[in-house]
Nucleic acid binder design. Structure first.
Length: 574
RNA sequence: CGGGAUGUGGCUCAGCUUGGUAGAGCGCUUGGUUCGGGACUAAGAGGUCGUGGGUUCAAAUCCCACCAUCCCGACCA
């Protein structure tokens, strides 16, 4: 492709509303433009890269036994009502009505759609397993779109859904897709870590997220064990248990703690370390109240708490509700003598003689003990793991990182097939629910993550597999016929060879602009025709990734470039 | 939705405190000179100052409302 014939509106400065490096570079390199908040247009170069990611995904999904199909974007309300997600997704969905008033939504995901298809078409175990996938535009009216393609409201997603006859089948399918995911991201040049995850709103049991470590652009907090490799999303992360405290139980005492409400204040006022206090938090889960207890120096993880009760909605109780239920204000509430369900963190259960609110404004209780003074209904892990906590598998201190979630896999089991009554006839002649899995990859986000991982202060450094072009020819002076003629020759020769080549044939810009644009665009190899060529017929080939420059004779350029490209592909495939 | 900020040619921004003419750099158009790291030169084009209302002889500037965008939090590929 000739530069003058395509459309690459590069920007010298990044538009102000871009924050992330990848977002800035995508705008500056002319890959995309914003249409509205969280809604983007792809321009020719951006589209080429996007298509390459899609192609890699297709190849690996097909290899893993996936069957591509395409569901509609517009989905009828009815199937969502069946699973209850019309309300659960709620405001996240873009909803619309047709002229007759029938309600629809723009699909935020397609579990309902596939199950609806499967229950009508798959009837026998003989037709299983089946894995369907599509690459399609999804719509989620995000509370807060941000970071360009990282969190968009309209985005491309590859979503796959598997149907198996039994758990062993699902296990096999899950592993196949899991491995396909590893290869997909590897081929895109991404360094991903599969982490154990919570299954969230989608439902199900086992789930993994594929994350790219990025402290800046990452939105997913996860723990990582540098020794054994244990990795888990903060919502699913475990840590080794705390040690049982010993000592005799002391008699409970009510002490006055005027104006001391936060853990910090109470700890200072009583001169007792935070880890000897217990934080009491009143929550409302699907309309029911739960008092959650965590150690004073810990933080509650709402998702863990919610999952514990199989809840759908969770929110802290209002000040008024707190007052009504405990008789005290937030800051003075505690587990002793209240008539609510109590969920204590495992660490709290190891504590002796601790401090809690007294359910009376301005007072706390000291020397409180579980079993004697109150009994929690459940004792479970509901705290956030912190950096330095010990790995649950090998005892090494854990690291805390942020990552970009580029993909997620779930073992759904029968959550959806039951709700939508999707059954098949098994070997034994009995009707059974499909055992399902679902698997997503954010295509645009993957592209953004690639740029996030491969850039320098000059611009993008595309891995060859997803670069818009493999090589860029840069004739520095188009009015010099020796140079432009040579460029033209190489351009045609490269194309004939099947290489994807871009030639910066602009006549009206100086060498500086061409160099800067080339570095910004990040095509892996630059073939520079200018001074060195005029002097001794040598062409300079620059590797954008390493910055390495090699002078090559004209008649050897093609082979040299070809070899470099092959090497680059091989490095991503190994 | 809570907190913070911004809105002025295509892009980055100044002007607003103290009301009176809309500005700069980059980009764009035309001609000429240049041609290895965002060149030089001459002449040009281009703006409802986010929208609506108010105050005033007069509003980009002061007041009110709304909208949009971005950042921090709750949600998620």
């Amino acid at each position: 492709m000739r530069f003058t014939e395509t459309f690459v509106p590069t920007l010298r400065e990044a538009p102000q509303d871009a924050e992330l490096i990848s977002h800035k570079l995508m705008l500056r390199a002319g890959l995309m433009r914003k249409m509205a908040s969280g809604i983007y247009s792809f321009l020719p170069l951006g589209l080429r890269s996007l298509e390459k990611v899609k192609k890699i995904i297709r190849e690996e999904m097909d290899k893993a036994g996936g069957l591509e199909l395409l569901f509609p974007t517009i989905l009828p309300k009815e199937i969502w009502v069946e699973t209850g997600r019309w309300d659960i997704y709620g405001n996240e969905m873009f909803k619309l009505k047709d002229r007759k008033g029938r309600e629809f939504c723009l699909g935020p995901t397609h579990e309902e759609a596939v199950v609806d298809l499967a229950r009508g078409e798959l009837r026998s175990y003989k037709e299983l397993p089946k894995t369907f996938y599509q690459i399609q535009t999804k719509y989620r009216d995000e509370i807060r779109p941000r970071f360009g393609l990282m969190r968009a409201r309209e985005f491309l997603m590859k979503d796959a859904y598997s149907f198996d006859a039994d758990e062993e089948g699902l296990e096999k399918t899950y592993n196949k897709i899991f491995n396909a995911y590893k290869r997909i991201f590897k081929r895109c040049g991404l360094t991903t870590i599969p982490i154990e995850a919570d299954s969230g709103a989608i439902g199900g049991k086992v789930s993994h997220e594929f994350v790219v470590i990025s402290e800046k652009a990452g939105e997913s907090d996860f723990v990582y064990c540098p020794k054994c490799g244990y990795a888990a999303n903060i919502e699913a992360a475990k840590s080794a248990d705390a040690e049982e405290e010993n000592g005799e139980m002391q008699p409970v005492e009510k002490v006055s703690t005027p104006n001391a409400k936060t853990i910090e204040e109470v700890s200072n006022f009583l001169n007792i370390p935070k880890k000897k206090l217990v934080k009491s938090l009143l929550y409302k889960i699907d309309g029911e109240f739960v008092l959650a207890l965590v150690r004073g120096d810990d933080e509650l993880n709402e998702v863990k708490l919610k999952n514990l009760f199989g809840g759908k909605f969770i929110s802290p109780a209002s000040e008024e509700e707190v007052k009504n239920l405990t008789g005290a204000q937030v800051g003075s509430i505690g587990p002793v003598g209240v008539n609510v369900k109590i969920a204590a963190d495992k660490r709290v259960s190891k504590m002796k003689n601790f401090v809690t609110g007294a359910n009376e404004d301005g007072y706390h209780l000291i020397n409180v003990n579980i079993g004697r003074d109150f009994t929690p209904q459940v004792v479970v892990d509901i705290r956030n793991v912190k950096a330095g906590d010990l790995c649950p598998k090998c005892g090494t201190p854990l690291e805390l990182h942020k990552g970009i979630e580029v993909g997620q896999t779930f073992k759904l089991g029968t959550v959806y097939s039951k709700k939508m009554n999707a059954k098949f006839l098994d070997k034994d002649g009995k009707e059974k629910y499909f055992i399902m899995g679902c698997y997503g990859i954010g295509v645009g986000r993957t592209l953004a993550a690639v740029i996030e991982e491969h850039n320098d202060k000059y611009g993008i450094k595309w891995p060859v597999s997803v670069a818009p072009y493999e090589v860029e020819i840069i004739p520095l002076n188009m009015s010099d016929e020796d140079i432009s003629g040579t460029a033209e020759f190489l351009y045609k020769d490269f194309e004939k060879e099947g290489m994807e080549v871009l030639m910066d044939d602009r006549n009206d810009v100086g060498a500086g602009v061409k160099f800067n644009d080339a570095d910004l665009l990040g095509i892996p190899l630059q073939v520079i025709i200018g001074r060195t060529f005029k002097k001794d017929r040598k062409i300079e080939v620059k590797d954008r990734e390493s910055g390495e420059k090699t002078l090559v004779k004209l008649n050897e350029v093609k082979e040299f470039v070809k070899k470099k490209i092959t090497e680059k592909y091989n490095a991503l495939n190994e």
